[in-house]
Each structure stands twice: as structure tokens, then as C-alpha cells.
Amino acid sequence: MNKLVDLQQKKAAILKGIAHPVRLCVVEALAKREMCVCEIAEMFHFDRTTISKHLALMKNLGILDSRKEGLNVWYSLRIRCLASLLSCVEKVVQGQNVDMVFSSCGCGSFLQDENREEEKRI
């Protein structure tokens, strides 16, 4: 398979992996601190099995890290920049000016870097 296609499929899989309201909440909570699975489960009105399935999916995609301590499993965000991405998306959803969003979340600096690289190639 073409390496670019493979790379794009892997990136799409990660984005699909957070594309659920429960998983978005988990990512945002873990952006603040490491949490035990029992704490994560308390955030929702689901049984622990359902939450564990969401966590396993995100761990298998490389979105989360976990460690076992005694009987507890602790989760942390492996892809830390997802918190910034979600913050940026939230501002756009709330109708904030796109230019202001880019300057406050760091996306603008990324776009400026991309433009500079493009100018160098021309």
C-alpha cells in the first residue's frame, strides 16, 4: 500500500477514535491529569464495561497510555496535543472568529510555518 495512503488511514483512525461524545470527554479530562478507570467511570452513567471498551479502543490507537497500580488502572493522554485541537474546535463551534481561534490555540503558527515552507519551495 502507498505509504501516504497508509499514513492518512492511520490519522483518520485516530480521529475516528475520538469521534464520540464519551471519548471526547475522556480526552478532555485526561488532558488535565492522569485518572483511574474508576474515576473516569464515575463521570458517566454507564457501566464500567462500556467505559473500559472506550478506553481500550483509544489505547489501541495510541491515543492513551495506561499503567497498572495494584488493582487500579490509571490512564493518561498520550497524544497531548489533542487537547489543543479540541479547544480550537470548541471555539469554532461556539462561533468565535476563526482568525482569533488560530492565534489563541497555536494553529495559526502551524499555518504560518506551512506557508513559509511553501514559499521556500517556490
Rank of each mutant, 00 (worst) to 15 (best):
L30Y: 04
L30R: 13
I63W: 12
Q9W: 14
D47F: 02
L86Y: 00
A12D: 15
V101Y: 07
V5M: 04
M58V: 08
L4F: 11
L24W: 09
E114P: 04
R48P: 11
V101R: 02
I79A: 07
G62L: 07
R78L: 01
K32S: 01
W74Y: 05
T50D: 00
D113Q: 12
L111E: 09
N97H: 10
A29K: 13
R116N: 10
V93G: 03
K68H: 00
G95L: 07
Q112F: 03
V5W: 06
M43H: 14
D65L: 03
R67M: 06
V5S: 02
V98R: 11
A83R: 13
K32T: 04
E90I: 00
D47P: 00
K10D: 06
K3N: 13
L71T: 12
A83C: 02
F46C: 02
I40C: 00
I63S: 03
D47T: 05
E118G: 03
L61D: 00
M100W: 13
R116K: 15
L4D: 03
K120S: 13
K53V: 15
R33T: 11
I51G: 00
C105Y: 02
Q96I: 08
C107E: 06
L82E: 01
G62P: 09
F46R: 03
Q9E: 15
A41K: 09
M35D: 01
L7D: 08
L61R: 03
I18F: 13
R23Y: 10
G70S: 06
I40N: 01
T50P: 05
M35W: 06
L111P: 08
L24P: 06
V22C: 02
G17N: 09
G17M: 10
Q112T: 14
M35C: 04
L85Y: 01
V89M: 03
R78G: 09
V37K: 08
M43S: 07
L4I: 12
E90T: 12
F44P: 07
T49N: 09
V26H: 07
R33W: 05
G17Y: 14
V22E: 06
K68C: 04
L57M: 07
G106R: 02
M58N: 06
C38W: 12
L82S: 08
E28H: 14
M58W: 05
T50G: 04
A29E: 05
R121W: 14
N115K: 08
T50A: 04
E34K: 02
V26L: 03
I63Y: 11
A83E: 05
E34N: 00
D99W: 08
K68D: 01
L82W: 11
F110Q: 03
S103W: 09
A41G: 10
H45E: 12
